[in-house]
């Protein structure tokens, strides 16, 4: 019982990471109808910014939580201008983007591997632990969970109430009508990629003190995020959040009994079953 409670807390923080990464993926898919295969590397770069800033430059950890998303906004613009935007208007643009973002993903991963090396790197986050009876929660893990949910709520409010959110949903629901009413759909696309990159960046910065930094951390998370997006429904925001957190929890519980490899096998079985039973995902259609 104690073990289960402990694992649920651990699963929750992992789930927050999956949800945040999946949110960016699903928003980009909803607006641009492309799958950004480089999304995991954006998460990894968020972690890398934190490692460099904290460990090499002596920047306080909390400052890197602002630094990482801001830098990732710029990386997002670069990704759009180099690997997404120019390809979209082509005849086979959508499949070209799969290849181009995959290329960017490999490029970034190998670049970081070559420069930093494969060894994991520690970052000091918040210190201290919270003891709740038999369950021990590090302050950093608690911080990940709380800030993660605040970010998700903020993002949801932005999508619902802000002009950008409304224009983004309009572009996702009917691109032609959005253009006809004067929404600059290409600009909305760029800003969606920037937003997705910033969320991935802050997620990386949040999680790195918990998981440690490795160049492969993006790959590990993005594969789960793809599962989340497919099961939650491509383009669905509540789907990404609920399935992301759910996946973190399930994974942590299965981990009690089974090895890591077995856990992964179980998750992919879920993906296959989900795809066969509900190809449109649990939460159906476009971004809302």
């Amino acid at each position: 019982m104690d073990l289960i409670a402990q694992q649920l807390v651990n699963g929750l923080s992992a789930g927050v990471a999956y949800a945040l990464v999946a949110l960016g993926l699903t928003l980009i898919f909803g607006v641009l109808h492309v799958i950004n295969f480089a999304h995991g590397e954006l998460y990894m770069l968020g972690g890398l910014v934190t490692v460099i800033a904290c460990n090499l430059l002596g920047v306080p950890y909390l400052v890197t939580l602002v630094l990482a998303p801001v830098i990732m906004l710029v990386v997002g613009v670069g990704l759009d201008k180099l690997a997404i935007g120019p390809l979209l208007d082509r005849r086979d643009g959508l499949s070209d983007v799969v290849l181009s973002t995959f290329a960017v993903s490999l490029l970034l991963l190998d670049l970081v591997l070559a420069v930093v090396g494969p060894a994991p790197e520690r970052v000091e986050g918040l210190s201290g632990v919270l003891i709740l009876g038999p369950v021990i929660i590090s302050h950093q893990r608690l911080f990940v969970i709380v800030l993660g949910f605040i970010l998700i709520a903020g993002l949801d409010a932005m999508l619902r109430y802000s002009r950008f959110g409304i224009e983004m949903r309009a572009a996702a629901q009917d691109r032609f009508a959005a253009e006809a009413v004067g929404i600059d759909v290409n600009a909305i696309g760029t800003r969606t990629i920037m937003l997705g990159a910033a969320i991935a960046g802050i997620a990386g910065a949040l999680l790195v003190p918990v998981t440690q930094f490795t160049p492969l951390m993006g790959q590990n998370v993005v594969i789960k995020a793809f599962v989340v997006v497919v099961i939650g429904g491509m383009g669905s925001v509540p789907g990404a959040v609920l399935c992301g957190v759910g996946l973190g929890l399930i994974e942590a519980l299965v981990n009690i009994r089974f090895s890591e490899g077995m856990t992964t096998a179980i998750i992919y079985s879920l993906l296959l079953v989900g795809l066969l039973m509900r190809p449109q995902g649990l939460f159906g259609r476009a971004a809302r």
């Binding site: 949903r169 629901q173 032609f176 009508a177």
Partner: peptide, 12 residues
């Protein structure tokens, strides 16, 4: 333009 087929944003 009010387009043919209305094209309202259905989930808004």
């Amino acid at each position: 333009l009010s387009p043919e087929g209305r094209h309202v944003f259905p989930d808004m």
